[in-house]
């Protein structure tokens, strides 16, 4: 019975600090796929993302990257986006 002790987030690498010596993360939002559920925003430990109202969309809002410099590539937003709408490079 192999219960895992790994906490979500830590499993993916450094949550606390951006990795030194690497280029800044690039976060790509596929706006056509985003349904505005906000899961990525609450999953991000460093407040990189934010919802932006967009009345032109049926869902009313779309995710926006507001603090890319804080991103640590922990991938939690990408992993938890149910709509395949966010990618972290």
């Amino acid at each position: 019975m192999a219960e895992t002790r790994v906490q979500e987030g830590k499993a993916a690498g450094a949550v606390e600090q951006p990795s030194p010596g690497k280029s800044l993360p690039r976060i790509e939002v596929i706006a056509d796929f985003c349904k505005g559920c906000e899961i990525c925003v609450v999953m991000c430990p460093r407040n990189v993302l934010e919802m932006r109202a967009d009345p032109s969309r049926w869902v009313g809002s779309v995710v926006a990257v507001v603090r890319p410099e804080a991103c640590t590539r922990c991938m939690l937003c990408e992993v938890h986006c149910p709509d395949f709408a966010i990618k972290v490079f």
Binding site: K35, P82, F84
Partner: peptide
Amino acid sequence: YLRMERMPHMWCPGCGIGIVVKA
């Protein structure tokens, strides 16, 4: 692994199925 011509998928905003499929 996706049939991109069929995307975006039909699941409601925030539905967890997409998260499971990704995993």
